[in-house]
């Protein structure tokens, strides 16, 4: 009885995880939707709000490295955020440039973290026990490795 229940729950949990995986993958898949925004903002803009003033975002006239690496291919607009929330950083690929929404999400998130905290946080390499190479586990690892480039940004 206990075994049946455990198996049933395992199947159900795997199903729930699969739903998450599909949603993550679908939302994060580059090149889907309309225009360069990968199915999000139709004009391809993505944005983060950084708790810093505009000058701190461009020390010496140069963006921090995660954004600087793409800056030649991007249009970038800075706007003050309301209620003392810092500066909005809006960015999109210039017309004619091949859009890479995942790279843009990563660059925006990492830039925000660097400016606010001085680092980009990470968990890997993480201590862990035995991980058997199951299809489900491999799939989850693949999603996790791309998760910063996914999501709703």
């Amino acid at each position: 009885m206990a075994t049946k229940r455990t198996m049933g729950m395992s199947v159900a949990a795997a199903g729930a995880a699969a739903v998450v995986a599909v949603r993550v993958a679908r939302r994060g898949r580059p090149g889907t939707g309309h225009g360069p925004g990968a199915g999000r903002d139709p004009d391809g803009w993505k944005a983060v709000t950084v708790l810093a003033d505009a000058e701190a975002l461009r020390p010496g006239g140069r963006y921090p490295e995660p954004l600087a690496a793409l800056a030649d291919r991007l249009e970038i607009a800075l706007r003050p955020a309301g209620r003392d929330r810092g500066t909005e950083v809006h960015a999109r690929f210039r017309p004619g440039e091949h859009p890479d929404p995942e790279a843009l999400r990563v660059a925006l998130r990492d830039t925000k973290s660097l400016v606010e905290t001085g680092i980009v946080q990470r968990a890997d390499p993480v201590p862990h026990g035995v991980r058997k190479p199951t299809p489900f586990g491999i799939g989850q690892d693949a999603i996790e490795s791309r998760s910063k480039g996914m999501g709703l940004l």
Binding site: V20, R23, V24, R27, G28, T49, L51, R85, G86, R105, R109, K112, S113, E116, T117, Q121, R122, A123, D124, I143, E144, R146, S147, K148, G149, M150, G151, L152, L153
Partner: peptide, 27 residues
């Protein structure tokens, strides 16, 4: 992180920079 807007306003569990896998919870 203690330095994003959420942390500065005391909403630490909502921190913008503490989760290296933001795409999963966003989904």
């Amino acid at each position: 992180c203690g330095r994003c807007w959420y942390c500065r306003t005391g909403q630490y569990s909502l921190c913008d920079n503490g989760n290296p896998n933001p795409g999963i919870p966003e989904a």
